[in-house]
């Protein structure tokens, strides 16, 4: 009897706390369902329909959209371009970011100045800076080709030729993402215990390279993995520069995944078909995240 009497107010207090918890979380839960879960489910469902905006009805077409995707040359081109862009931007921006971070970390003076300069592109409006880059890349009046001409090199029509447009966009992408990767690497570098470097020196790691291989690189493992994932995801999401500068051209040479989805869904209004593409896009993100969380995670966290 006594114990029940003791428990009663506690149970009541627990219930009250649970009720308050629900109340506090309710707006978030509602919005989460409304703006994330429901639309995600909807996009998967729409991927199996022939829904087009402006037409009233739609019907389920099974995997027809996906079958069409496989044969769609624009979509294949777009996937390929996205892959090439990612394959250029991710490694180059990471290597540059790591190199700059190491140089800045080793430098005692003007650390903050250099960090600010390299980080500036991250804080700048990409659409605006893309416009500046368009001017820099201009085949006749652009400073880059004018500069090359000083050395007698005839610069290409960077953004106007199908052979170079992806490289031009990649340069902008690298310029824009190095600063972000750099600050993450800097944070990773500062987190390495100084005593490990001291131990490495006493243990006989004479050169900078020895210490880098024995301490810096392994200790940066978690940071590197994280930066890799986020860089790939950001590269796969390239859209702003393409939309602003090339509209996928010339001749679909700069069609990328999000731009193709945008064209199909919001310009041609083929919502069903674009949804199937979106599902594909989402699948890529899921696979990337899965790789990060499961496979690689074990190898780089040492605890």
């Amino acid at each position: 009897m006594a114990s029940i009497a003791m428990d009663m107010p506690i149970v009541a207090a627990d219930r009250r706390e649970a009720r308050i918890a629900w109340l506090l979380a309710a707006p978030a839960i509602t919005l989460l369902f409304l703006f994330i879960l429901l639309p995600t489910l909807a996009v998967i469902v729409l991927g199996f329909t022939d829904f087009e905006l402006g037409y009233g009805g739609f019907r389920f077409v099974g995997f027809e959209n996906y079958a069409e995707l496989i044969g769609d040359r624009t979509f294949r081109r777009s996937l390929w371009n996205t892959a090439v862009y990612t394959a250029i931007v991710t490694p180059v921006s990471m290597v540059l970011a790591l190199a700059i971070a190491l140089l800045i970390e080793a430098e005692t003076r003007a650390k903050a100045f250099f960090r600010t300069v390299y980080f500036l592109p991250v804080a700048s409006l990409l659409v605006a800076m893309a416009t500046v880059w368009q001017f820099l890349f201009h085949p006749t009046i652009g400073p880059i080709n004018t500069f090359l001409a000083e050395f007698g090199i005839a610069g290409p029509n960077w953004l106007g030729a199908s052979g170079t447009v992806l490289y031009g966009l990649s340069i902008i992408g690298i310029w824009q993402s190095v600063g972000f990767n750099m600050v993450l690497f800097l944070a990773g570098l500062t987190a390495i215990p100084r005593e490990l470097y001291a131990a490495a020196e006493v243990d006989g790691a004479r050169s900078w390279l020895d210490r880098f291989r024995l301490v810096t690189w392994p200790m940066l493992g978690p940071t590197t993995l994280f930066v890799t994932t986020i860089s790939i995801i950001n590269s796969v999401k390239v859209f702003e520069t393409v939309k602003t500068l090339t509209e996928g051209g010339p001749n679909k040479a700069s069609e990328v995944l999000l731009f193709t989805i945008y064209q199909e869904g919001f310009v041609y209004l083929r919502v069903g078909y674009a949804s199937a593409m979106t599902v594909f896009f989402l699948a890529i993100l899921v696979v990337l995240m899965f790789l990060q969380y499961r496979v690689l995670d074990r190898k780089v966290h040492y605890a």
Partner: peptide
């Protein structure tokens, strides 16, 4: 002479073991 060439050994307060090895 560099630390590596002095043939001294050191035990650190935090032990400074390489966590990945």
């Amino acid at each position: 002479v560099a630390a590596a060439d002095r043939n001294v050994a050191m035990v650190f307060q935090s032990y400074a073991l390489y966590p990945h090895l």
